[in-house]
Write a protein that binds this DNA or RNA. Structure first.
Lengths: 122, 122
DNA sequence: AATTTATATAAGTTATAGCTTATATAATCC
DNA sequence: GGATTATATAAGCTATAACTTATATAAATT
């Protein structure tokens, strides 16, 4: 879960890709239309679209020699929700955080207690 | 808006920082506690905390020689909402996208029309 | 005052991401 | 079937981000 979330956040955390996503929310666009609209090179667009596609944010539809991209249905609900869901999730049920949770619980009572605990605050 | 959103998404799109955010949702923690919990070096944690702080995701409270970090009140609502808000916003009202919007509207009718429009699809 | 503790920052290195240029593929048009 | 159009991918370069090691600062302890 954390892995997929990271992929989505990384994909969206780039200005050109944020623009593409917003433009695709207006309507489906092919690569050459995006090229004209954004005024940047075609390989650059294709590369960004690949990142967005791998993150599950956009989907592709081929028609003749064109590739049309549009928002994957999951975007408006799913991708936003996935972060909210991560924050809402019970921390004990996130496998990626299990070692940290264990250490957090034992912060005060075992050999993992660290130097900063030797001078506890009031 | 797009700039601030990008900063937040970049800050969250990193596994260690995602973990820190989740841990801080449990309770406020000082740097040395995070060090013990995450098992990574102190400078690495301080650096990640700086990124999160600059993005407005966490806030700092100094007590004696410690620095305690906690989620900024805006996180659960604000940061998630900001992406939703970006997607909900009227595209014409996003200044960063005004050149693109202009080109998008004129795709079919002026000199900006590009090669791909010379062979329109059915 | 000297030492220890807690944190921050800076410098240097490595890894990753983004961009450009060039090329490949595949459909369409003449 | 050769040329054009649309897109993808690969190679090389540059910029950015992350990590490590070392050092600075400042409070607390002795």
């Amino acid at each position: 879960m954390i892995q997929q979330l990271e992929t989505v956040l990384k994909a969206l955390g780039e200005p050109t890709r944020l623009k593409i996503v917003k433009l695709l929310s207006v309507r489906e666009l092919c690569v050459c239309e995006l090229e004209a609209v954004l005024g940047i090179s075609q390989p650059r667009i294709s590369q960004h679209l690949r990142v967005l596609k791998e993150a599950g944010i956009v989907k592709e539809r081929k028609e003749r020699q064109r590739s049309f991209y549009s928002l994957a249905g999951t975007l408006k609900t799913g991708e936003i929700a996935s972060f909210a869901e991560y924050m809402r999730a019970e921390i004990a049920q996130l496998p990626e955080l299990s070692p940290e949770v264990a250490r957090l619980q034992n912060l005060d009572c075992n050999e993992a207690v660290r130097k900063c605990k030797n001078s506890p605050l009031p």
